[in-house]
Simulated scan of single mutants.
Amino acid sequence: MMSAPLSRRLAAEGVGTAVLAAVLVGSGIQASGLSPDGGVQLLANVLASVLALAVLIALLAPVSGGHFNPLVSAAAWWTDRRAGTGLTPRELGAYVLAQLGGAIVGVGLANVMFEHPFVELSGHQRASGHLWLAEGLATGVLILLVFGLLRSGRGRYAPVAVAAWIGAACWGTSSGSFANPALTFGRALSDTYTGIAPGSVPAFVLAQTAGAALGLSLVALLFGRRGPQPAPQHAPDDARELLAP
């Protein structure tokens, strides 16, 4: 099991998700205010977000795993459930709540920093089959990447690799690669460049969940299934070091 107290891990997940959400939404507001060009806006928003993501994973992975994403936490629990390491169901629920709370706080702070109300429901409708397909693809590859690196003993590359994939997926998918239910929910609370209408959130989250399930299936197919095994003495905990450099 993880050595850090649960309270410290939850604080790391909440703070990390809040900072990521604040940078994501804040950079979108900043970019849309500084340039009328959509391509420049997207470039600035994506660049700020992926840099923040890489830094936050590198900083907080040794404490909590650096998930900042309920589906990454759920996948970590699922892959480690037979080995008896990693998150318990109770801890998984607490992680998800911390991530959702962090996303709400981070989006609210970004709103306030740019003179918007703390909560301002988005009117940006994102409801179409091609967007749901894009979300499934972006999330599935994210899960494949994270757990493929972990399964092959290359988890130290995750901060750069995860940030690189999110950046590529933001440009290469029609949905802009939300790929994170917590941030998707948080973005519904900002009627700005990165927002999503509350009514569009459930379908996005369902698509992300389906993509995550597919990603886990691909991990098993490409890297083999992980069965029950005793933890060697002094071995690193998989869930704790899921995204550790």
Results as ranks from 00 to 15, higher is better:
Ser49Pro: 11
Leu51Ala: 15
Leu51Trp: 09
Leu51Ser: 12
Leu51Asn: 10
Leu51Gln: 11
Ala52Phe: 04
Ala52Asn: 05
Leu53Met: 14
Ala54Asp: 08
Ala54Met: 10
Ala54Ile: 00
Val55Pro: 04
Leu56Trp: 05
Leu56Gly: 00
Leu56Lys: 01
Ile57Gln: 01
Ala58Phe: 12
Ala58Asp: 05
Leu59Asn: 04
Leu60Arg: 04
Leu60Thr: 06
Pro62Met: 09
Pro62Leu: 08
Pro62Glu: 05
Ser64Tyr: 04
Ser64Ile: 04
Gly65Gln: 03
Gly66Pro: 00
His67Thr: 06
Phe68Trp: 03
Asn69Trp: 02
Asn69Lys: 10
Val72Tyr: 09
Ser73Tyr: 06
Ser73Glu: 04
Ser73Lys: 01
Ser73Phe: 06
Ala74Ile: 09
Ala75Gln: 03
Ala75Met: 08
Ala76Phe: 03
Ala76Met: 08
Asp80Val: 11
Asp80Ala: 15
Arg81Cys: 11
Arg82Gln: 14
Arg82Pro: 10
Ala83Asp: 14
Ala83Val: 13
Gly84Phe: 11
Gly84Leu: 07
Thr85Leu: 12
Gly86Asn: 00
Gly86Phe: 02
Thr88Ala: 11
Thr88Glu: 10
Pro89Ala: 09
Pro89Tyr: 13
Arg90Thr: 12
Arg90Glu: 14
Arg90Val: 15
Arg90Gln: 14
Leu92Tyr: 06
Leu92Pro: 02
Gly93Gln: 11
Gly93His: 07
Gly93Ile: 03
Ala94Cys: 10
Ala94Val: 06
Val96Trp: 05
Leu97Met: 13
Ala98Met: 00
Ala98Asn: 08
Ala98Pro: 04
Leu100Phe: 12
Leu100Pro: 02
Gly101Gln: 08
Gly101Trp: 00
Gly101His: 03
Gly101Pro: 01
Gly101Cys: 08
Gly102Met: 05
Ala103Val: 04
Gly106Lys: 02
Val107Glu: 01
Gly108Met: 03
Gly108Trp: 03
Gly108Leu: 00
Gly108Cys: 13
Ala110Leu: 05
Val112Arg: 14
Val112Pro: 10
Glu115Gly: 13
Glu115Lys: 13
Pro117Cys: 06
Pro117Ile: 01
Phe118Pro: 04
Glu120Ile: 05
Glu120Met: 08
Leu121Tyr: 12
Ser122Gln: 09
Ser122Gly: 07
Gly123Ile: 05
His124Pro: 07
His124Asp: 12
Gln125His: 12
Gln125Gly: 09
Ala127Asp: 15
Ala127Thr: 14
Ala127Phe: 14
Ser128Tyr: 11
Ser128Val: 07
His130Pro: 10
His130Glu: 14
His130Phe: 14
Leu131Met: 06
Leu131Gln: 04
Leu131Gly: 01
Trp132Phe: 15
Trp132Cys: 01
Leu133Glu: 09
Leu133Tyr: 09
Leu133Asp: 05
Ala134Lys: 00
Ala134Pro: 02
Glu135Leu: 02
Gly136Cys: 07
Gly136Ala: 15
Leu137Ile: 15
Ala138Val: 00
Thr139Val: 09
Thr139His: 01
Gly140Tyr: 06
Gly140Glu: 09
Gly140Asp: 07
Gly140Ala: 10
Leu142Ala: 07
Leu145Val: 03
Leu145Arg: 02
Leu145Asn: 04
Phe147Met: 11
Gly148Asn: 02
